[in-house]
Amino acid sequence: MARLPGLVTASALALAAAIAPASAQDALHVAWYGGNWGDAFKACVADPFTKATGVAVVPEVGTSTVTLAKLQQQKDAPTIDVAWMDGGVSELAEAAGVLAPITEKGVPNLKDALPQAVYTNANGTYAVGTGYYSLGLTYNTKEIPEAPTSWNDLWKPEYADAVTIPSPANSSGVPFLFFLHKIWNAPAGDFAPVFAKIKELKPALFFDSSGAASNAFQSSEAIIGAHFNVGAFDLIAKGLPIGFTVPKEGVWATDARLHLVKNAPRAEMAQKFIDTALTPAASQCLAEKLFLGPSVKGVSVSPETAAKLPWGAKGSVENLYLLDWTEVNAKRAELVDTWNREIARK
């Protein structure tokens, strides 16, 4: 091999490059979350994408906020092409100027996304949802045989010291305050009544990670409270006596969104990747694996999965309370500070 004339070697290399464009350097870099989320994104979107295009996908694992931090650091010379980030962080990323608009020209399947899942501002579409998840009422079916019907049940004396709701360190903590503010019809902009009521709550714990909530329900430390549909049905699948219900006031929900990174080195493939994620097949796959409510029109799932979706067995995206994140982000620091002073101390 080493003795081959230079010209032959060079042309062989050129030929190899021409027939196999998907060398390691050309692999698409996609930021997504860890654990079963990353596994599902790989199986439902990345694998079909690689199969269709021959382009490998390199995952950049991190939570939404870590991904945003990475994107801000590599703003001038990004290495990430596509990024999954949750609602809320998505708006922050757009404000930080690290996203490029997603167009129907580059992503034809965008037209099939639910209108609620297409996030557009003056610069165009900066994000598209790939599935909803909700924070519903979760309870221990052994201790509470009948499904609770209202969020106010958390204040019932018989559940004292066995209730859990998210703390502001969790991504759902501040949005949950907005949700309570809405269902209790508190005066606009005034969270004092919400804090006063939470002060009366007798919690087992305020969970700061989804894992801590799962752990609390699993050990019966909490027998009623808020939990993500993704986490709750994971416990149910393990055979634990847990129920998940959408009470009459509804549930707060958000979504995992896809973003095209500004100046992405492989922009064309990045758009194809987003297009793949918006196919009914990918959406259905995410619903089956993570119980994410499909954000693509006309996706049908098995009745078994349908019961585990964020909006409950009979609902739809209309039953979800989706927040105006700009409003939430503007009040975030203030609410966290009030929570610390009023709630998180003895």
Binding site: G173, R332, K346
Partner: peptide, 17 residues
């Protein structure tokens, strides 16, 4: 259980949420 706050938790909150 989120009912007592130590300083590192305040730091984490500012960075994470």
């Amino acid at each position: 259980g989120g009912q007592i706050t130590v300083f590192s938790m305040l730091i984490f909150q500012q960075y994470s949420s």
